[in-house]
Design a protein around this nucleic acid. Sequence first.
DNA 1: TTTTGAGTTGTTCGA
DNA 2: GTCGAACAACTCAAA
Length: 468
Amino acid sequence: MKSTSLVWLRNDLRLADNPALSAATRREGRTIVLYIDETAIGVRPPGAAARWWLHNSLQALEADLAGLGIDFTVRHGDPALIIAEMVADEAVSAVFWNRRYAAGERAVDAAIKAALISSGVTTESFGANVLVEPWDIATGQDKPYSVFTPFWKTLKQRPIAQPLPRPDAGISRQANQVDDHYKEPAWAEKLSGHWYVGEAAARRTLADFLDHRVDAYPEGRDFPDCEATSGLSPHLRFGEISPRQIWHAASMVAQMAPEKAAAIDKFLSELAWRDFSYHQLYHRCDIAREPMQAKYATMSWRQSADDLAAWKSGQTGLPIIDAGMRELWETGTMHNRVRMLVASLLTKNLLIDWRLGEQWFWECLVDGDVASNPASWQWVAGSGLDAAPYFRIFNPVTQGGRFDAEGSYVRLWVPELAALPDKWLHNPWEAPAEVLSAAGVKIGETYPAPIVDLKASRTRALEAAAAL
DNA sequence: TTTTGAGTTGTTCGA
DNA sequence: GTCGAACAACTCAAA
């Protein structure tokens, strides 16, 4: 029997720049690609919105692999058992994958690798999903960086590996098995109106961004009604595109068009934040559970199911907060600026544990990422690395005036306030009665009164942080 | 080993 | 309305 190579894909659902897939297709014999809907302990299952994305991404991948004549299988269960079974059934002689970085994930992978080696199966794992492997970058004292700027300066000096091309066609073709464990969530229809999923869409998004939008990125990225951000985050989340591909494509544009270089540098620094988060995930213990600054372990978070529910459902009475939370629910994403605002409101004004916000984002975001999501929540909450100083508490009214001055973002997502003039759009509870009635707004009826006093809660947050 | 400069994204207050 | 200072001190990273 000919030898068979098995590629286990996880968060690397692409053909190009996929070292595991390239390694398999270089070998003599058949290549099988496997995705496992994992039930392993220590591997965080995707949230509901991400699961929708995943399903569509797997379908796109299946079509792409079929074009190469490579068999693709999706299974559900314990990866150790499934891989052992496939190795036995398909006469697999080599197994390849690209690395992942959470402690639980590494434990699963290490155990599987050990079992494969002991049964004489070749295995190899590759770096493919970060720019620089976490163990390949350290401070002069050989410690992991905990401040972003020196991390970024060092990263920039590094040669980033050139992306690999798509592999050549395989040699066999069988009927692929689709993902039949997937159940369409109720919100699938609305999510599907907002996104194109898959490797081809990821490449188009990158090209469009670099061609048309990156110039406006440094200025425009803070304005939630501007389409100035790249839109790449869910593609990166599932590895439909690799950070190295982005790095080199962007660097090429910077070389050809020097006037774009500064904007591209800013964009790539944001990509480096993703690596910074992955390096935290690798070096620190469970960043979705444990505060990275130990003193935050003693923080006395408020318990309020009502406040949490109002925040989740976009009914806080604070327009830009509600706009963001409703955008999240409708589209599976939220503009970065607004993510900071809603996270600051939850963790500072409402003094609710960042983990609860992190979990809600994980459930609702199509780009909910095992590294970026917890690292960023900790950053806002103050317990993260290079975190916001405790006195940095966003005021949703001030921020609304600054970044949504004409109100188009709030009017889109909070239509019950659409008729209010700009002046009162971000603080309707302070508007004169005649302005409210002219706009058809009744605070407490058509739109909630604010669930928290911004000034008093700011003081409370400052005191709670100072007490640490 | 010690020193030094610096650190993603803010708000408020008072002059 | 505009502007600078205060909000704290700490830790990091490199010289």
